[in-house]
């Protein structure tokens, strides 16, 4: 899923300050699961913005709703935003973008989109994939070095590894983990294969994906 986090209130306020009636739109898919964009957070942010604006002497009004998924045109279609002069999206970047496309008013992001991640238990996620377009997980025992290594390097730990920890001190060394897991899987020889520099062109090629055409649709 896409992991997101709410922006600082001041930043959000500065975006919506010049409007008089703002609709907060939550997203009940990734953003809700990331505990940042569901109905609960929409409600909380509305109260927070009301309070902040009132203290600033502004009269901006805030209402809220939640879409099942903001990155789907059909879900957005049903959004009735006529009385509002701005939208504040509690979705990921994709949601903000699609909302902006269909709205005839400014759409602002209330969240920062952080990474593609997996749950680590209650209220905790870890980045697991960088959507690089060329998956190497098959060679790295399922641990993504592009994502989990701070430098995203592909051929083993750098000299900064410190007791199995990354030199940045905020995570275990992905390459030590990869090495250990390859050993556990009795595939240590996989480590020896030199992984070539990444084909970054796929990131450019796949700025869109359309399977609807002839031969493409599944």
């Amino acid at each position: 899923m896409i992991v997101v986090r709410q922006k600082p209130v001041e930043e959000i306020c500065s975006m919506v300050a010049r409007h008089r009636n703002v609709l907060l739109v939550g997203c009940n898919t990734c953003a809700a699961v990331a505990l940042a964009g569901g109905e609960k957070e929409v409600d909380t942010l509305i109260e927070l913005l009301k309070l902040t604006m009132r203290r600033k002497g502004e009269t901006t009004e805030f209402s809220g709703c939640v879409l099942q998924r903001q990155c789907e045109p059909e879900f957005i279609e049903h959004l009735d935003d006529r009385v509002y002069d701005a939208i504040l999206s509690l979705g990921c970047g994709a949601g903000v973008a699609l909302l902006s496309e269909s709205a005839d008013k400014p759409v602002y992001p209330a969240l920062d989109t952080l990474f593609i991640g997996a749950s680590q238990g209650f209220a905790s996620w870890r980045a697991e994939c960088s959507a690089c377009g060329k998956c190497v997980l098959g060679q790295t025992a399922g641990i993504c070095p592009v994502t989990r290594c701070a430098k995203g390097i592909l051929n083993g730990p750098c000299g900064g590894v410190n007791n199995g920890q990354c030199e940045l001190g905020d995570r275990p060394c992905a390459w030590v983990e990869i090495y250990d897991r390859l050993e556990t899987l009795e595939r240590p020889e996989d480590f020896k294969e030199i992984i070539q520099p990444k084909d970054n062109s796929v990131k450019t090629t796949y700025n869109k994906l359309d399977l609807s055409g002839e031969g493409g649709a599944r």
Binding site: G156, G159, N163, K192
Partner: peptide
């Protein structure tokens, strides 16, 4: 003297 040393030595070979 890296800890752990084995991945470091494997990379040395690479």
């Amino acid at each position: 003297d890296a800890v752990p040393v084995k991945p470091q030595l494997a990379k040395f070979e690479k």
